[in-house]
Design a protein around this nucleic acid. Structure first.
Length: 575
RNA sequence: UGCCCGAUGGUGUAAUGGUAGCACAAACGACUCUGACUCGUUUUGUCUAGGUUCGACUCCUAGUCGGGCAGCCA
């Protein structure tokens, strides 16, 4: 059958991070390469995460290593179990058949369960105590407001907290009482003792623990103090034996802190190291969990998995194959340059994948009836249609040509523009897989609207017929009017009208009002058997897939994944 | 006016001191029972100024421009 050819044939990807890993492999620095993908379960994963997943799992895959999916769940007030579920499903879908054998699972707990930073709250607390004992962390009584004031500014040093010089014994006592729940939220915090005058803001005695009397989705009421990202992340990496901790550019400033914490603890095993790359920016797309949440909350879209959303769930529902997303990630590369990727790169990867794999079908989105007056009303001419011309040995299926057919309204023009080689009055066109037909008559209603076309079929031009080789300029798609099914078809367009929707900070103002058009289409009956994970090319139109969520037996709903490239539509011809 | 990161055709990305290449996009052409696919051709690039060197996209210095950093978010 069809292969995922670009992936199989392409050389292994190379980028500055993989270069570093390759060097470490060459010098045998680690027994095994272990990476991790650490989303916070506070939203759905999007295409930017897909880039990171492909990087982290790709490195594991290329080096016979492992990549851990880890919920970075240290903030109970923002995280939900629903997101844990969706993230797990999305990651597994994206890597299935590609890197699923590199996915690390925690050894305890339910089978197939991802890692949780919150599973390390115990060890993390012990590490914090250890830091206090070394005199490198202290309990600070400054309120959030004063903590901020004492921190200074990027161009102005901060001032030492008055609690910075507390004794180890007092710090130990206070930290234990924080854990015991003796103080309200925000009353105290645990801070690293580094340097309030550092030019790096993240080294000005950053907070390690804050008090939060809140239930956690994974640990319940076990804790009322929660570690912050910087403390939890490096140590979670260490605990899991991560070798390369890959994150995005905004964490570059945090790297000295990442190293400081690990080095301060004088840990026995090899330490993980952090490497940073530029996150994805995509034209006409929002790639920010916070803003995507806004689209959901304000009902601009119908949910996180709305097919217009750049979420992995949305793209999947739209019909984008996982392999296309992987190909896209491969094509855009990994650098430290903050770039804006053209959506055309994504669209190309989708079309390339779908062209290889999608079954061809006939469907008419905006039908106009054509009566072939020389055909009998009660008989069908059986024709053979190719399922996928890209296959090495393409298979066929029958389609019925009948006296009444539907053709696409766009494929007829009473007054054709120049170079229009579709149907026009008195003109000829081939009905794909059937025969050449001629338009004899245009029927209009009282208002002048075209309601029907009449023509004749030249059956001698059928496949196997004596005049099969007769050429006409145009070939159009069609379905039998008496042997077709109806289905709802959702035609999606880009969600935003601006290449950089949030360039002015008002992305909601650039939502495309025509991002969704719903039509009732006429489809060939074979589509009745469409499968939820099936990919179909409606010939000359685009790629479609069944909407797994809204389709029911007898009431099918198709989503347009992407249209075919259309150089005719782009031409500046008057229409 | 502090620290950090970056800059190669329209876009993205290679070249790690030795021929500036690839992909996308665009334009044109061939083919076509999908105006698709495929194939062919073409256009366009090393931020600036110095320096090192036989030789600089690459190394050094200064500048310019862009991005990040002042959550008890991650």
């Amino acid at each position: 059958m069809t292969v995922e050819h670009p992936e199989a044939a392409a050389p292994a990807p190379a980028d500055f991070i993989r270069d570093i890993v390759a060097q470490h492999v060459a010098e045998k620095r680690y027994a095994k390469i272990v990476t991790r993908f650490p989303p916070e379960p506070n939203g759905y994963l999007h295409i930017g995460h897909a880039k990171s997943i492909c990087l982290n799992f790709g490195i594991a895959r290329e080096n016979h290593g492992q990549c851990n999916l880890r919920m970075d769940d240290t903030n109970p007030t923002k995280e939900e179990i629903e997101y844990v579920r969706s993230i797990t499903a999305d990651v597994q879908w994206l890597i299935a058949g590609w890197a699923d054998d590199c996915l690390g699972f925690k050894t305890s707990g339910a089978a197939g369960e991802p890692y949780f930073a919150s599973d390390y709250f115990g060890p993390l607390y012990d590490f914090a105590v250890s830091l206090v004992q070394k005199g490198q962390a202290y309990v600070c009584d400054l309120s959030p407001k004063y903590t901020e004031a004492y921190r200074g500014a990027p161009d102005r040093p901060g001032r030492d907290s008055p609690f910075r010089t507390r004794s180890v014994a007092e710090n130990l006592d206070l930290f234990a009482r924080m854990k015991a729940g003796e103080f309200p939220d925000g009353a105290r915090s645990l801070r690293a003792k580094i340097d309030m005058a550092s030019p790096n803001m993240w080294l000005r005695d950053p907070l390690l623990y804050r008090i939060r009397h809140a239930a956690h989705h994974h640990t319940g009421d076990a804790w009322c103090i929660y570690p912050l990202y910087d403390f939890a992340h490096c140590l979670s990496d260490y605990l899991e034996g991560i070798t390369h901790s890959i994150c995005t550019l905004e964490f570059v400033d945090h790297r000295p802190l990442y190293d400081w914490i690990l080095e301060s603890l004088a840990l026995p095993r090899a330490l993980p190291h952090q490497y940073e790359f530029a996150k994805l920016n995509l034209g006409y797309t929002i790639v920010s969990k916070r803003k995507l949440l806004q689209l959901v909350q304000e009902k601009v879209v119908q949910g996180w998995d709305d097919p217009r959303m750049p979420t992995i769930a949305g793209l999947r529902r739209r019909g984008v194959p996982a392999a296309a997303l992987r190909q896209f990630a491969y094509n855009i590369g990994v650098t430290k340059f903050d770039s804006l990727t053209d959506v055309a790169v994504l669209e190309h990867a989708i079309r390339e994948q779908l062209n290889q794999t999608a079954q061809r079908r006939l469907g008419v989105l905006k039908p106009i009836k054509l009566v072939l007056t020389n055909l009998p009303a009660d008989e069908a001419v059986m024709c053979q249609a190719t399922n996928n011309p890209q296959d090495e040995a393409p298979t066929l299926r029958p389609v019925a040509l009948t006296r009444e057919v539907y053709i696409e309204a766009d494929d007829f023009a009473e007054v054709p523009p120049p170079k229009f080689f579709r149907l026009k009055p008195g003109g000829e066109v081939r009905l794909k897989y059937a025969c050449i037909i001629k338009c004899d008559e245009v029927i209009k209603d009282a208002t002048g609207r075209i309601i029907e076309l009449r023509g004749t079929a030249d059956l001698t031009t059928r496949t196997g017929g004596p005049n099969v080789d007769r050429k006409v300029k145009g070939t159009i798609h069609w379905v039998s009017a008496t042997r077709c099914i109806e289905a709802e078809v959702r035609l999606y367009d880009r969600l935003f009208t601006a290449a950089e929707p949030d360039a002015d900070g008002e992305f909601l103002k650039h939502v495309n009002p025509r991002s969704l058009e719903v039509v009732t289409a006429k489809l060939e009956p074979a589509l009745r058997e469409a499968q939820p994970d099936g990919r179909y090319q409606f010939e000359r139109l685009g790629y479609f897939t069944l909407d797994a969520k809204d389709s029911q037996a007898g009431r099918l709903v198709f989503n347009r994944t992407i249209s075919l490239k259309d150089t005719w539509a782009k031409a500046p011809a008057p229409k």
